[in-house]
Simulated assay, not measured.
Amino acid sequence: MRSSRHKGRLRRSVPAIAGAFLLLAVLPASAQGASGSYTYLTASGQPFQVAEPPSDTCLPFVSGAVRFSNDTTDTAFLYADGACGGGWALVGVGATWDQTGVLAGSVRLGSTARSAQGAGR
């Protein structure tokens, strides 16, 4: 009799445990960063390099960027303003964005879904 009661508890716990594992597998890690670095050049010609930047975080450029090189493990999304608004350029892993006369204000590294939503603004 005792073992059947324990089996009943185990059967009720299995869906809860399975659900918890499913959530862990589906939800992205919030504190993850991109490996590598990115570099950018300001309109005045000053270079900047950022090593091991955080993912899914809006990172404003000092004085804006006219050239951006993505040497991280994440896709980079460039934005027109310093608060990751007015998104307009996508820079893949290992790629460079270079637009004469156009100034990017910020970058977000990570997933397309979060960047499209303007997450973390």
Rank of each mutant, 00 (worst) to 15 (best):
T39C: 06
A34F: 01
G36F: 10
G92I: 07
S4L: 14
S115P: 04
S13W: 14
G8P: 01
D71H: 10
L109Y: 02
S4K: 14
R11T: 10
Q99F: 12
A34G: 05
P28K: 12
G118R: 00
R2A: 15
G33W: 08
R11N: 10
W88E: 02
D71N: 13
L27T: 10
C84K: 03
S106H: 02
S13P: 01
F68Y: 11
F61P: 01
L103F: 04
R114G: 02
L22V: 11
V107Q: 01
T96I: 09
R114D: 14
Q117M: 13
G105Q: 09
D56M: 01
T39S: 15
S30A: 11
L24E: 12
G45D: 11
Y38E: 02
R2D: 15
P28T: 09
G45R: 05
G85T: 05
V107G: 04
V66A: 06
S44F: 10
A16L: 15
F77Q: 04
S37E: 14
L109C: 01
A31I: 04
C84R: 00
A65C: 05
Q117W: 08
L10V: 00
S13E: 14
D98P: 03
Q46R: 15
Q99R: 14
G120E: 12
G19T: 15
R9P: 02
F77W: 13
A18N: 02
G92T: 05
P15F: 08
G94F: 08
F68K: 00
Q99C: 09
D71C: 03
P28S: 10
E52D: 15
G86K: 09
V93K: 13
P60M: 08
S111V: 01
G8T: 11
P60S: 04
A113D: 15
A116C: 03
S35W: 02
H6L: 15
E52F: 05
P54R: 10
A25F: 06
G19F: 13
A29H: 12
H6K: 14
G87C: 04
L27V: 13
L90C: 09
I17M: 13
R67P: 03
Q49P: 04
A89L: 07
A18F: 11
P28A: 06
D98L: 07
R9C: 04
P53W: 00
V93F: 08
T72A: 05
N70F: 07
G110I: 03
A31N: 15
D74S: 11
L24R: 02
C84Y: 06
N70W: 10
A83C: 07
A20H: 09
S69K: 07
A31S: 12
L41S: 02
S30Y: 11
G33P: 01
A76H: 06
D98M: 07
G85Y: 00
V102F: 09
V93E: 08
L109K: 05
D81K: 03
W88F: 14
G64W: 02
G19Y: 07
L109G: 00
A95H: 13
Y79G: 01
P15W: 11
G36A: 05
S55I: 05
G19L: 13
D56V: 01
P15A: 06
I17Q: 07
L10E: 07
T57Y: 08
R9M: 13
T42H: 06
